[in-house]
């Protein structure tokens, strides 16, 4: 019934989407990625300035894509956290202004819950129990998900240091490949031998946290290798590094599936676009009899549609709206999909 507007500004993407009863009506995205390229990573102040410039054009594009008018909107959902504080403030301010002006309820939501909800727009509702691996430049998290909005989401593990996507960026820089590192390493790796260099598999020892991730040690191993081999083969190095990351991610994700006794793995986030992560996950899921769900790329990376999706679930569940004093919550563990000032 209700058309839910979703707004996402937690990092460098300005995303706006419209969802109604689990169906994506339309969305639009703007990115400031190019402006960060020469800094080798996202600069919060640059991202925030770009969000201000992109907000209205993105809203207008999404409205046109959905074939609606803003007057049709019945609720507004926004990423309240976690993310870059300067960037989050822009989306939260816009969402609150839309909600106030349109006279509709406001829902502050958790960014990671949005990622987990993204796949429902493509493949329908999630089963009763599933594991979500959220892997991007900002996060590397394993979640145990039951009902996305009714049951607390169990945050099984996180990276202890760098996010997987961050490791791709840093390693790309080390071996002279362009930013962002994910696509450029993926491309170089296709021409390389993944067994050429034996890079360590981080946190895979018997005494390490079974579901934990860590990528800074792997990055250091690549740095040491680069130092020792000035005339290294870029493609082989890229392929071997990528294999180490994919192996670690998929091993831990399947371990989580076994531990929680679930038969569905959802992989989302920018790194889900990596061809080796996808193929290795498919291979091992097939072997283990686990259904692998990966939404299409445009729903994998940060976007407004996924925030509208979680908002839509909250609205249909009759959730209490967030207070008008909702603010940005830059650091917050995921326990429930909805975030507001009261839970901060």
């Amino acid at each position: 019934m209700t058309i839910v507007m979703g707004i996402e500004t937690s990092c460098d993407e300005t995303g706006v989407g419209f969802v109604q009863d689990g169906v994506l009506l339309g969305d639009a995205l703007a990115s400031s990625m190019d402006e960060h390229a020469r800094f080798g990573g996202v600069v919060p102040e640059i991202a925030a300035r770009a969000h201000v410039q992109s907000m209205l054009p993105t809203v207008r594009k999404a409205v046109a894509d959905a074939g609606i008018t803003l007057a049709d909107v019945g609720a507004v959902a926004v990423t309240a956290g976690p993310g870059l504080a300067t960037a989050l403030h822009v989306g939260v301010a816009a969402a609150k202004a839309f909600a106030l002006s349109l006279g509709v309820p406001l829902y502050g939501v958790h960014h990671l819950a949005g990622h987990a909800a993204a796949d429902t727009l493509e493949h329908g509702p999630l089963p009763d129990r599933s594991i979500a691996l959220i892997v991007s430049g900002g996060h590397t998290s394993l979640l145990f998900v039951r009902d996305l909005v009714r049951t607390p989401i169990v945050h099984l593990s996180d990276t202890l240091d760098d996010a997987a996507g961050e490791a791709f960026d840093k390693v790309a820089r080390l071996i002279g490949l362009p930013y962002p590192g994910g696509p450029s390493i993926d491309k170089a790796a296709r021409a390389g031998d993944p067994t050429a260099v034996k890079f360590p598999r981080p946190l895979m020892g018997p005494n390490d946290p079974a579901l934990g991730f860590s990528f800074s040690g792997l990055k250091t191993a690549v740095a040491r290798y680069v130092e020792k081999h000035p005339d290294l083969d870029v493609n082989d190095t890229a392929a071997s590094f990528q294999e180490a990351v994919a192996d670690t991610l998929v091993t831990k994700a399947l371990r989580a599936c076994r531990r929680q006794d679930v038969s569905t793995l959802v992989v989302v986030g920018g790194v889900a676009a990596n061809s080796r992560v996808r193929s290795l996950a498919q291979e091992r899921c097939d072997a283990a009899g686990i259904e692998l769900r990966v939404p299409p790329m445009r729903l994998c990376t940060d976007n407004g549609a996924m925030i509208a999706a979680i908002g839509d679930l909250l609205v249909r569940d009759g959730a209490r709206p967030s207070p008008p004093t909702l603010g940005a919550i830059p650091t917050i563990e995921l326990s429930s999909a909805q975030l507001d000032a009261l839970s901060a």
Binding site: V52, R60, H89, V90, A93, F98, L100, S101
Partner: peptide, 19 residues
């Protein structure tokens, strides 16, 4: 302060668009 300015201007933009 930048955050305050952004909040003000994006609020104005969104309200104007919605209304």
């Amino acid at each position: 302060p930048f955050t305050g300015l952004r909040v003000g201007l994006v609020t104005a933009a969104a309200m104007a668009e919605a209304l």
